[in-house]
């Protein structure tokens, strides 16, 4: 009996080492609940398609996500373009797949608010997170470039964790101007909130969020995942507000990289 037990133990360890869990990190741009609803079915789909055990993982905040990502904590991850250029630099994550669309940042204000509020010293700016690519970085860049408003100078920004919180915060008077992106704004379910907001500015288009893979992942595994992503069924894509995913070359994010450099937020 003891002999059988030893064999079983050995077999379990061996199996585990052969088929290690693949951790799929997702940037917490929305509330964790919403993320779970969207991404849990995708991880299940990928596991079924690849035969690998793919585990969905997110963090409490974007900051925490960044910390884990930059330390190579995920086998592959869905992240914003800025995160990608930093992760690529730090851990050599390589983007292989992204939505067949570009990303634009937007500035929203409460309906009826004057654009003058943009420059009002008492105005409060709401952003999801300091390094949210389109919602924070692109909008901040345009605010400086196009409206001459430096958030850092005003020191009046509030980071409210998610795009939805930005929209709801503006709607409920927590802030006066909020940074977001087109997709999240469009996906916003709360009609009362949406009804009370106006997009006052849209930034230039940049490549959207990539699925970047850790270089240590075996090629065949990565391929299986990439293939599965590219063949992802429509209901899952719809939940992501994406029409289609496409295979990409990581050089597509050079524009992002140069922007980061301009914003002086590119790590050395």
């Amino acid at each position: 009996m003891k002999y059988i037990y030893t064999i079983l133990t050995f077999f379990t360890i061996a199996t585990t080492s052969l088929h290690a869990d693949i951790i799929m990190g997702i940037v917490p741009q929305q509330s964790p609940l919403k993320l779970l609803k969207v991404w849990k079915p995708i991880s299940t789909y990928l596991s079924e398609q690849t035969g690998e055990k793919i585990i969905f993982k997110t963090e409490k905040s974007i900051n925490k996500f960044e910390e884990v990502l930059y330390n190579g904590g995920y086998d592959f991850a869905y992240m914003n373009p800025y995160h990608y250029v930093v992760a690529n630099k730090k851990q050599n994550y390589i983007a292989h797949v992204r939505a067949n669309k570009n990303i634009r940042g937007i500035l929203v204000m409460k309906t009826g608010s004057s654009l003058e509020k943009l420059k009002d010293k008492n105005s409060r700016y709401l952003f999801p997170a300091p390094n949210a690519f389109a919602a924070t970085l692109l909008t901040k860049y345009d605010l400086v470039q196009k409206f001459g408003v430096s958030i850092e100078v005003l020191n009046n920004a509030l980071y409210v964790n998610s795009h939805d919180s930005v929209y709801k915060g503006i709607s409920r008077g927590i802030g006066n101007i909020g940074g977001g992106i087109e997709r999240t704004y469009k996906n916003m379910n709360d009609k009362n909130v949406k009804k009370s907001l106006n997009i006052v500015h849209t930034t230039k288009a940049y490549p959207s969020h990539p699925f970047a893979f850790k270089p240590s992942m075996k090629k065949e595994v990565r391929k299986k995942i990439v293939d599965a992503l590219l063949k992802m069924p429509e209901p899952l894509l719809k939940a992501l507000s994406v029409k289609k995913l496409k295979k990409i070359n990581h050089t597509e994010y050079d524009s992002v990289k140069s922007l980061a450099i301009k914003l002086q937020i590119m790590p050395k």
Binding site: Q30, S31, P32, L33, K34, L126, L158, Y159, V160, N161, S162, H163, D164, S165, K168, G169, R172, I174, G175, D190
Partner: peptide, 9 residues
Amino acid sequence: TYDLATLDD
């Protein structure tokens, strides 16, 4: 943090 989305959820 005025994370109203989370709050609403």
